[in-house]
Design a protein around this nucleic acid. Structure first.
Lengths: 203, 203
DNA sequence: AAACGTTAGGTGGTCAGACCAGTTGGATGA
DNA sequence: TCATCCAACTGGTCTGACCACCTAACGTTT
């Protein structure tokens, strides 16, 4: 026995999802059925499922079954955070990285934002439901790069773990909206520098 | 029983590592001992350890024991990759994101590189042991942002999964070294554009 | 004394079976 | 027809048993 069983099981499950065309919300076979079909012990199946659960790929509900989950909330982040984010340097790195990524997202969003997205942002601002997280979630989405969105989500989760909050006045979002409408990249970066970077760099 | 046992065990293990001041390379108690000390079944301990193994936090060696690992290679990446990277858009996003992050790293490294690091890079080039991965590992390190290094490592792992290779002539590294010595940021970005971005964007 | 097997005990890897705790859906009764 | 109940699922956990593997101590040989 060279490789670990649960890793093989992961591959089997992946294939199962692919071949059966399962999507988010669908149910996958029970642990007992999997263990029988794959000729492995149930505990090995469970180790594989635990892994997928941590990665946020499946969701298990006691008494019901195991379901494929929409990518998104990841247990993973808070776990990694517990172990990684310990020193002071780490926190400084986190803030720096988050700001850099946000700058990138701003630039991408500036080029790629659509009229519909602009309308959604305008709505959010007028309804006063906008806050920093929601705003940048919009920015990341408007950048139209799924991977970058995920990177930002992870960093944001880390950030929240630190309980650091940023206080942004409503006027910031209004000015940003205007800059997005004109696709004025330098204005976006300037505003970002003035309202956000300045506030976080003095800590 | 509301919460899952293995999540509690994770917290216990984390505390154990913290309180005993364990560092990379140290051994943690055996599965049987943990299950006894925490009053839980061994299978539950194993589910927790499997999780930590996936996150790259511990390493298990059959017959020897379980050891704390230096952060770095995580099974996690290839796993996530299996499930996430499927469509064409995903691949395009990956390449774009990787290039953007590398640009950031270049800028940081340009400001922060030390004389020692420059010497190391020079050595690498002269010995002809340099390649794209090693070069950008150096760049990321020189940027002196641990988190950003990790982000790059993850993206690079994803990238390798795609079996895409970049072909870079030695002259590129030499010119880059010169630009780093002069701290000429625009030259760095220009070179990057010319040798790397151009090559990857035509796919 | 140094080098070489040998072996016993510890460790992770896996499995089977048992029981608990929820959920579900159909059979049963009013 | 509707409410109730219960059997048959599901995941969650524990136990005990093997196996494969490594290490260290021991004794033997050189």
């Amino acid at each position: 026995m060279t490789s670990k069983v649960y890793l093989e099981i992961l591959e089997q499950i992946r294939r199962l999802i692919e071949e059966d065309g399962l999507v988010a919300g669908d149910k996958i076979p029970s642990e007992r059925e999997l263990s029988e079909r794959l000729n492995v012990g149930r505990s090995s199946v469970r180790e594989a499922l635990r892994a997928l659960e941590l990665l946020g790929i499946i969701e298990t509900r006691r008494g019901e079954g195991t379901y494929i989950k929409e990518f998104g909330e990841h247990q993973l982040v808070s776990l990694l955070g517990m172990f990684i984010l310990q020193g002071q340097k780490a926190k400084a790195d986190l803030i720096e990285t988050k700001l850099l990524i946000e700058k990138i997202c701003l630039q991408l969003a500036c080029q790629r934002r659509t009229e519909n997205q602009l309308a959604a942002l305008k709505e959010m601002i007028e309804q006063k439901t906008v806050d920093y997280d929601r705003f940048f979630k919009w920015v990341a989405d408007a950048g139209d790069n799924y991977l970058l969105v995920r990177v930002w989500l992870v960093l944001n989760d880390f950030f929240r773990l630190e309980k650091t909050t940023v206080d942004i006045p409503l006027i910031f979002y209004k000015k940003m909206l205007a800059a997005f409408q004109e696709q004025n990249e330098s204005a976006l970066l300037l505003l970002f520098e003035e309202y956000v970077v300045k506030q976080l760099s003095k800590r």
